[in-house]
Nucleic acid binder design. Sequence first.
DNA 1: GGCGGTTTTGATACCAAGTATCACTTTAGG
DNA 2: CCTAAAGTGATACTTGGTATCAAAACCGCC
Lengths: 151, 151
Amino acid sequence: MLVSLDSVREQLENNGHRYTQTRGVVIDAIAASSHGFSADGVYTSLPTVGRATVYRTIKLLLQLGVLCKVALQNGSPRYSMAASGHHHHVICIRCGSISDFSQCNLDDLAPRLASALGREPVGHRLEVYTLCSECEGSPEVTLVRGGQQHA
Amino acid sequence: MLVSLDSVREQLENNGHRYTQTRGVVIDAIAASSHGFSADGVYTSLPTVGRATVYRTIKLLLQLGVLCKVALQNGSPRYSMAASGHHHHVICIRCGSISDFSQCNLDDLAPRLASALGREPVGHRLEVYTLCSECEGSPEVTLVRGGQQHA
DNA sequence: GGCGGTTTTGATACCAAGTATCACTTTAGG
DNA sequence: CCTAAAGTGATACTTGGTATCAAAACCGCC
Ligand SMILES: [Mn+2]
Ligand SMILES: [Mn+2]
Ligand SMILES: [Zn+2]
Ligand SMILES: [Zn+2]
């Protein structure tokens, strides 16, 4: 929803990949997913698409920068549509929903680290865990396989 | 090496766990490991100890705060002895060696995020990837299964 | 529309990093 | 030494993902 499907198509085609029927199905499912979906969730929601294809498509979209891969606090991987530019993620410890942020003073983190460490960072990962506003009041919901999201 | 084995024993016993023969063997292996070891590496280095026990022991040491678990850039998990206090990790993208840092301006990160997000962070993970000084010059070494370390 | 080369797909098998079970062994303590 | 509790390890299972490879889809060209 939050990303133009046509732009994903362009991303694919501009990089020598085809926008096939099957990829369209997967991408539609991803676009309809909540932030913080699992690969297995996409797979089980699409009985017509093979497991390998779902994982391959997600990997491709990661390479193209269309998706972000993040880790829940327990390490379990989740995906969400990539915001443009460098950013990080806030992840709900209960429902696994993901939101982006970039407004903090992390832009100067890299140079600070460079001087502190005497080496150039070539990348970093920052994930912040919190209880999202939807989850704050509801003590019932538990994070389940596939990533439980709010109704 | 960098941590007192006796203190690990105390940690265990103070928390109602036994310092068994087997745990001693695993902990010795871990203490002798370089920073950034893999569970499987410990397992295969100890033919007398069962796989489940290696993983269980590592899990226990994580719970006790004796070990840190970090992720390589590709997501593969590695472990290292925990420094005391809140800190983060610098990970070599080539050899997987891990060092700690805490001196950056990340202490004020949490409150900044709290106000930026309107929610309290309950935790965060920051991992910085770099090429360690040992790896900087050597174009040969490749990161292999189990975590290739410097000789 | 049909051809043919390239890409993609999906079933299957496999791998990596663990966890659940459960009978057996250790251990601490009396 | 006996016993109850804790720990161990073989085995099977799970989750997340990749390698293979024959079959299917795609694309440009005629
Ligand atoms: Mn993102
Ligand atoms: Mn550490
Ligand atoms: Zn939530
Ligand atoms: Zn290195």
